[in-house]
Design a binder for these strands. Structure first.
Lengths: 344, 344
DNA sequence: ATGCTCGATCATATCGTTACAATCCGGGAG
DNA sequence: CTCCCGGATTGTAACGATATGATCGAGCAT
């Protein structure tokens, strides 16, 4: 029906409004230097043609894209979705948009995403790294500001926003021990992330201080999905000397534990207490409702964007400043799944 | 320390490799017309400078960006996350990238996202519309191909990929009725989405055929979040003549129902059966595990991308083809939360 | 009148890439 | 020897926006 219709450009708008391209540009960018009648004429023309500026061309000229990249380990994890919401809300408030990339726990995909983001010339990147190598890559090749979120590449000073995982777990274990639990199993994901490492360290410290043993064998087994929580739970609960409390360092593994418990008809919290890291909307709905350590996830996303924007601004003036680390506090949400140990 | 360092361009690469810019371009784009030794020289230079082409400039010249936009109603709904995964996987396979936008159930935000995507000149848009108005806007202003996903603007023929909501619910009700339930309550979200409307119609048809009444008062109340399921559940279960089966048309509202049940100490499925639309990872872990109607969500994302790409290609040749509707089948997953009605 | 200032408007170079036409060169046919 | 062909390489004009300096008047002091 209609011929190949290319989008209108400023040239077209200028022609229709009877002004120069520069004037159109000034109006579009609210420079405030164009007289009222010309402004009106231009706006009318813009509306009539449904004109919208070509972001690529603009970015080419200005060197900025007003886009941020967000790379997360696993978008099916509600934790990252909540962080994403914080990121988007804060970004949109500063007139930035967010390119969301899911690396799906695969290092090669993560690297691919990072390269793609660079090619798009995003103004900055928020990275929850799956892989320490691509994280370093992202940092050291001078491709613009990066802020790490949730998880930090080991032994490098970087801009980051994380929760105090060590303290959170330290307090968590103290809480369980305070309920009288002496046999506490800690289940965590792969020990390649700073997140897991810090959490385990927090547990270890607390256990040591109270002279309690740590179930070493169940430590590095999980992969943060339901199934691994389930199978580890089965093993643990059917062992000759089962723990009286289980602390999973991730919320979905806790679901697996609950499933294992109900399958083995072991009552919770009467025989075994369960506590998990990360809150989720189902945590207080599930029976028994789940005691969790909740991170301020949404705020984490917001804070990360603030830090990144700050970093973008300052990187134009002074190339390198001290990397800034923002440490957020978590809170213990006690619900039904944890209780004092019963002597029998 | 170091001065403001601008990224390298093809010009720089060409200079270092001792060739022309055109040659660099040909190598970068694998045109296969450059001799082996020059190709090697260029690649070496590219690697040395860590060169990456400027996507904005490329898009400006070629008129394509290799980006797709995905706009979803609510990213905290696992349903959309699963669709997103399908979209990303399929897109990446065709060398496209995906710009994810969350409209957070807000029409104005959705419109803003659509405009932003257009300004970015994405090659096509996947839209799970919150608002029928911006959906029309997206369609009629000739801003490139759009494929609707999950939910369709009412009374317009469009490219879309949806599940057969009518049939799914029709079968769902027949299943419940087959278990002996005569008092079935249907809880659904706001009746502004084609999704909800079709589902309710399916329920209505089945109920009519079996001469069963439909609880009109609980129909249009929900908002698809846990809380609304919870409060509607409380009302329903404490009413003088409570239903023996509850069918929620969304998975998170089902969580709310379960919570209401356990709070009122009403046993499920002994006294009340619960069934929900949409599967989720927690559905089979929760006790009682939840009977659901599962949509092929991941495949939906994939199919939508395929349709969109096809639409992008053909839109260059023939401006308008018949809009294509892809209808997917859902499957009933029977679990513990539904059982035959008990006579007492 | 003349020159000056200042605000509004305009003309044009430029950003980094690709498309296309032009060029170059070696080798085979006449 | 000349001509021509075709593959490899190059030069240059776009793409659509913004930044910058030029231009143009009107108003005002001299």
């Amino acid at each position: 029906m209609m011929a190949k219709q290319n989008a209108y450009t400023m040239r077209d708008v200028a022609r229709l409004a009877g002004v120069s391209i520069s004037t159109v540009s000034a109006v579009v960018n609210n420079k405030g230097i164009v007289g009222p009648e010309l402004t009106a004429a231009v706006q009318k023309a813009i509306a009539a043609m449904n004109f919208s500026p070509h972001a690529g061309a603009r970015g080419l000229r200005t060197g900025r894209t007003n886009m941020l990249g967000l790379v997360v380990q696993d978008i099916t994890n509600p934790f990252f979705v909540e962080a994403l919401r914080g990121v988007e809300d804060e970004a949109i408030q500063h007139d930035y948009e967010v390119l969301v990339c899911n690396s799906n726990d695969q290092a090669d995909l993560e690297l691919r995403h990072l390269n793609a983001l660079y090619t798009k010339r995003v103004d900055g990147i928020l990275l929850a790294p799956t892989d320490s190598y691509s994280a370093r890559q992202a940092l050291f090749t001078d491709r613009g500001p990066v802020v790490f979120i949730d998880c930090v590449p080991i032994k490098i000073d970087v801009n980051c926003v994380v929760t105090d995982n060590f303290e959170a777990c330290y307090n968590g274990i103290k809480y369980l021990a305070g309920l009288g639990h002496h046999k506490i199993a800690v289940i965590c994901g792969r020990l390649i992330h700073s997140t897991s490492i810090d959490r385990v360290e927090g547990c270890r410290k607390a256990l040591q201080e109270m002279n309690l043993p740590i179930h070493e064998e169940s430590l590095g087994q999980g992969d943060s999905h339901i199934e691994s929580g389930y199978s580890i739970g089965l093993n643990l609960l059917q062992s000759p000397d089962p723990p009286t409390a289980i602390f999973t360092l991730n919320n979905r593994m806790a679901l697996g534990i609950l499933r294992a418990l109900s399958e083995l008809k072991i009552r919770c919290p009467e025989r075994v207490s369960v506590m998990s890291f990360d809150d989720a909307d189902w945590a207080e709905v599930v029976r028994p409702s789940l005691t969790t350590i909740a991170q301020p996830t949404y705020e984490m996303g917001k804070a990360a964007v603030d830090l990144l924007l700050q970093s973008i601004l300052s990187s134009k003036e002074q190339a390198d400043r001290e990397p800034q680390q923002i440490l957020l506090k978590s809170t213990l949400r006690v619900r039904e799944s944890t209780a004092a140990v019963t002597r029998d």
